[in-house]
């Protein structure tokens, strides 16, 4: 059973990112009254990039090419820690969520370094913004994970998301951390209202501006890793919402989780169609909203457990 599930997890990790981005784009296209690209258009884009020869700036060092590779490697390994299909992860151990968050940190720092390697002021700008938002986002993520750990009494990802909506306090905990994770998704993977993946005005971009000089397979690695991060965040949110427990009906739980994951993608598309981008100055406050909602969840959990003492 376990090897089979592991294989399914790996397949989902490698294949899901592309249709996830496809679903977001299709949602946005339908809202705008367009037909939109194919759901699997991303595969063609990646294949095109992989066949291209990259061009490097004369200023760059070896670190420039290492950045995308480290980003993709850390994202892949972190994908093995997260319960992508609900309640199960191939690598599961106590405090795996700490490793998960820090792996993302490692990938991020290498992307920033490869951006700074070009000596471009635009890319410095992007790296600076990314570093600022990441620093503000990190505590929100840990508050959310820590709250879930306290609420469920487990310390590994697989059991972390089983809070449910049984009591009012649990509902507050679930909703608070859910909002946090949604904001994490938007910041980490550069979605509206934090960043607009469709814009091409360098002055206002965050993520995309850091990879202005990347091309060919390097750019493919960055885009694929970003889509994979999106999928992982969406799967975590789906796990929080999933009412079916893996222990009872594994197949059903996986199916519901997948549907919910795509549901999150639709929600991201909705937000992108209906909400305008925030001003850059306001984004730190938006990121802090994530921290505050996780803090509310933490207070609810502490109150619930303190009361039962």
């Amino acid at each position: 059973m376990t090897p089979l599930v592991t294989l399914a997890h790996l397949a989902a990790l490698l294949l899901l990112p592309v249709p996830m981005v496809g679903v977001i784009n299709r949602t946005k296209a339908l809202w705008a009254g367009r037909k939109g690209p194919r759901l699997l258009q991303g595969f063609s884009d990646l294949r095109r990039l992989l066949r291209k020869r990259p061009v490097y700036s004369a200023v760059t060092t070896g670190l420039f090419a290492a950045g995308p590779l480290v980003l993709l490697a850390t994202t892949l390994v972190s994908g093995l820690l997260a319960p992508l299909l609900g309640g199960f992860a191939p690598l599961s151990f106590p405090y795996d969520f700490v490793v998960f968050a820090y792996l993302w940190g490692l990938g991020r720092i290498f992307l920033m370094i490869s951006a700074l390697d070009t000596g471009s002021s635009f890319e410095g700008m992007g790296a600076s913004r990314e570093a600022t938002y990441a620093a503000l986002l990190e505590p929100a993520l840990f508050l959310a994970f820590g709250t879930l750990a306290a609420a469920t009494g487990t310390t590994s990802f697989a059991g972390l998301l089983d809070v449910g909506f049984g009591s009012p306090a649990q509902a507050v905990t679930s909703l608070g951390t859910l909002l946090t994770l949604f904001i994490v998704l938007q910041v980490e993977t550069a979605r509206v209202p934090v960043d607009d993946p469709a814009t091409h005005l360098e002055l206002t971009m965050v993520h995309e501006v850091m990879v202005l000089d990347h091309s060919g397979p390097d750019l493919a690695a960055v885009q694929y890793a970003s889509a994979m991060k999106l999928t992982l965040c969406a799967a975590l949110i789906a796990g929080l919402l999933n009412p079916v427990r893996a222990a009872g009906a594994p197949a059903l739980a996986v199916a519901v989780n997948l549907v919910l994951t795509f549901g999150v993608a639709v929600a991201v598309g909705f937000v992108e169609s209906l909400v305008a981008r925030l001003k850059l100055k306001v984004i730190p406050q938006y990121v802090l909203v994530g921290g505050v909602s996780a803090a509310v969840a933490l207070l609810a959990t502490a109150w619930m457990q303190g009361g039962s003492r």
């Binding site: 968050a101 940190g105 370094i113 570093a131 620093a135 986002l137 990190e138 505590p139 840990f142 457990q305």
Partner: peptide, 27 residues
Amino acid sequence: AGIERGTFIAAAALLAFVGGVSALAMT
């Protein structure tokens, strides 16, 4: 459980923040 654990988790979040800030500074 309760206030103590909540404070511990807040301290963990602070440690995470410190890590993020230090990543910014070192980059």
